[in-house]
């Protein structure tokens, strides 16, 4: 059995979450449905929050979580509700 240092586990979690955030960014850019794009963007922000937490920046976590998961999707959803939901070619 391979012994893993705790640091290795932390770095693995960071690597996985950063790669998943790349996937979320890609989906958010390519998605035609803007509401789903906002949700993907929020997922990306959540993964970034994990990164900030493990990089020992809890202050940034506390400001990033409400702003990027709560407030910005809220504003964007309000704006989408005033225009069209699906992006055109």
């Amino acid at each position: 059995m391979i012994y893993m240092y705790p640091e290795t586990i932390v770095y693995l979690i960071m690597a996985v979450s950063s790669i998943l955030s790349v996937v979320a960014v890609y989906l958010a850019i390519m998605e035609r449905d803007l509401v789903r794009a906002v949700l993907y963007s929020a997922i990306q922000s959540g993964l970034y929050t994990i990164l900030y937490y493990f990089l020992m920046a809890p202050d940034i976590v506390l400001v990033y979580l409400p702003v990027a998961v709560g407030l910005i999707p809220g504003v964007l959803l309000i704006l989408i509700s005033k225009t069209e939901r699906v992006e055109k070619e």
Partner: peptide, 10 residues
């Protein structure tokens, strides 16, 4: 950890 801006945004 935290502060005025973080608390207000929450």
């Amino acid at each position: 950890p935290g502060g005025g801006f973080q608390g207000g945004a929450t």
